[in-house]
Design a binder for these strands. Structure first.
Length: 289
DNA sequence: TGATATGTTATCTT
DNA sequence: CAAGATAACATATC
């Protein structure tokens, strides 16, 4: 599932490829996947591609923006001109041995944005939870304000975390994943961050000691930066690929995520799995307190 | 085949 | 009323 590192990877790639291009046409195959009137953005140039939390923000030359949320199974892919043959879904994705040479639309392509130079941006989304939305700057501001600070920005201080944690008895893992408290962290990285910080996911947030919060803050930054370095995680059963169709590789560096029953790499304990807020939680009960 | 997985939001419950 | 818990969304996989 795309979280901050995956969205960051996609955004970095798209901004090198899309800035300056003009939108020629938009094809919507699933109405649920595209909110707004395509005619409001056709003929407009792309000025920038940025990220806020797990949102992709495409700035256009008429003061409007295309917001993209990938939710669990969304993909944004750059498709070269004249690549029209439908490709088998698995090609170039989790389980495939090599990336597709030609990234064409699939049965899960919900929206295609075509540019003046004939390249296309494909929005694939198996589960149809994701969306592309046209908004103006007012709406963008409102949406952005709902998120907590960026974990890699300078607003993420120990003091901020102390203040937020002191206010709730919720399990620390749920607080890490709460987008209003901290932007962009989801199930994969909350598990990995808490392992790195040696903190039990179930621990009530208000019980964290200052020293633990200090280590936790360092772990948040360390894990996210490492995941970005490896271009995100294309874990088992995940749809995430980069915008060029290639998988990320941080899944090869997981310590606990999807590792139930395996040995802890620090202490030889066994990795446990439990349900928290309806989501799988992975941790070593021997070295996470 | 029915349970499971999954992020966010809407809707319940306490 | 607010915080916390849970259902809903869509679909593939086991």
């Amino acid at each position: 599932m795309p979280e901050l590192p995956e969205v960051e990877t996609i955004v970095n790639y798209l901004s090198t490829k899309l800035v300056g291009k003009k939108i020629k046409a938009i094809k919507v195959f699933k109405p649920k996947s595209f909110i707004g009137q395509p005619r409001d953005v056709i003929g407009r140039k792309i000025l920038s591609v940025e990220r806020r939390a797990k949102l992709i923000i495409i700035q256009l030359s008429n003061g409007k923006y295309l917001l993209v949320h990938l939710k669990m199974s969304g993909q944004l892919l750059i498709s070269p001109p004249r690549c029209t043959a439908p490709q088998p879904f698995g090609a170039g994705q989790a389980g495939a041995t090599s990336p597709r040479r030609c990234l064409g639309p699939t049965k899960y392509t919900r929206v295609i944005i075509e540019f003046d130079d004939k390249t296309r941006l494909l929005f694939n989304d198996l589960r149809i939870f994701g969306w592309i939305k046209i908004v103006n700057s007012e709406k963008l501001k409102v949406e952005s304000l709902k998120f907590g600070p960026e974990p890699l920005g300078k607003e993420l201080t120990e003091e901020y975390l102390q203040k937020v944690f002191a206010k709730t008895k919720k399990p620390i893992k749920l607080v890490l994943m709460d987008q209003e408290k901290l932007a962009g962290i989801g199930n994969i990285y909350s598990n990995e961050i808490l392992f790195a910080a040696k903190i039990n996911p179930l621990k009530p947030a208000d019980q964290l000691k200052d020293q633990e919060i200090k280590v936790l803050r360092d772990s948040i930054i360390k894990i996210l930066l490492k995941a970005i370095k490896y271009k995100g995680s294309s874990a088992a059963d995940e749809q995430y690929v980069q915008a060029n169709g290639q998988k990320g590789s941080f899944q090869n560096h997981f310590s606990v995520y999807q590792k139930e029953g395996e040995k802890c790499r620090k202490c030889r304990g066994i990795i446990k799995r439990s349900k928290l807020g309806g989501r799988s939680s992975f941790y070593c009960e021997k070295c996470q307190f």
